[in-house]
């Protein structure tokens, strides 16, 4: 599999759900170099998921432009693929058919498609399950199939919309590590939207904190940590604490009660930390 990343340039991006409504976010600027793993952290409702859908081309921005390697982005493409909170596999298809569905849409010949699917399944360690009905898989396995379905397209950019939040702590930790390791090995960009601070620290090279209404990027952190990242590593813990403080401050500035903020950002993080 040969994948390369993409230089992302977002200028003056804005979005409003209705012409008379308040903007979800406006005048958003973002640059991300080839191969970077970028996390966008923020409370529910700050517009981070909407931003991700716009970057994926699934929603159209009401203002601003996006360029990937100087090419203007105006719609969805199999070159930038999104993984959702739930796997959303097609239950009438087997595992291998689910993984190869995008290649089928692109008109790939069966033989080449089968080879690519086998390779992607190997990457997510589900080769033994190629002929299994997806309804027989666990939540973690299903999310791995969704990951393989994205990777098989050899995307330049993988967008993740809180993709592991519905999984148990152990599976989530394992997938967080695996996705980062695959992205770094194959060289594609990652944009992860999450409100789990641990997830951002473990997966990203850089974390942005989004807050306010309309949402804006209020903080930026370089997550300069060595791989593989261990949750109990003091550097990881320290980065986590810094991000948590910044998240806390940003959310309070945006007007949310302190207890609510702490609950939202800390609930998942603490559960993972306890298990890890």
């Amino acid at each position: 599999m040969s994948i390369r990343g993409v230089n992302i340039s977002i200028k003056g991006l804005g979005y409003r759900y209705s012409s008379r409504g308040n903007p979800t976010f406006s005048n958003l600027m973002l640059e991300s170099p080839r191969g970077e793993a970028l996390a966008i952290i923020g409370r529910s409702g700050c517009g981070k998921s909407t931003l991700l859908h716009i970057i994926a081309g699934l929603n159209r921005p009401t203002e601003g432009t996006m360029h990937f390697d100087d090419k203007k982005i105006e719609g969805p493409s199999s070159r930038w693929v999104m993984m959702f909170q739930a796997p959303h596999l097609f239950p009438w298809m087997k595992v291998s058919q689910n993984v190869g569905v995008g290649l089928g849409f692109a008109g790939w010949p069966e033989k080449e498609k089968a080879e690519r699917v086998a390779e992607a399944l190997k990457l997510v360690e589900l080769s033994d399950y190629a002929d299994t009905n997806v309804q027989d898989l666990s939540g973690g396995q299903q999310q791995r199939v969704a990951l393989a379905r994205s990777l098989v397209m050899e995307p330049e950019l993988l967008l993740l919309d809180e993709p592991f939040s519905a999984l148990d702590a152990f599976t989530r930790a394992s997938l967080q590590r695996d996705v980062r390791s695959i992205a770094k090995r194959l060289g594609f960009n990652l944009i992860i939207v999450t409100h789990d601070i641990d997830e951002a620290v473990l997966m990203a090279d850089r974390a942005l904190i989004m807050a306010g209404a309309p949402g804006k990027i209020v903080h930026e952190f370089a997550v300069n940590l060595t791989d593989p990242r261990q949750r109990q590593d003091p550097a990881v813990q320290s980065m986590r604490a810094r991000l948590m403080d910044a998240f806390h401050t940003a959310a309070q500035v945006a007007g949310a009660p302190a207890e609510e903020v702490a609950e939202e950002a800390g609930a998942e993080s603490s559960s993972v930390s306890q298990h890890a």
Binding site: P76, F90, V101, G102, F105, M153
Partner: peptide
């Protein structure tokens, strides 16, 4: 599940493929 349409669009499904490979089997 409306997300199936979103996933299919995201993976490059044309309207005909959406009909024949997603809507009708679903």
């Amino acid at each position: 599940d409306p997300a199936w349409f979103k996933v299919a669009r995201n993976l490059g499904a044309t309207p005909v493929q959406m009909l024949t490979q997603i809507i009708l089997p679903a």
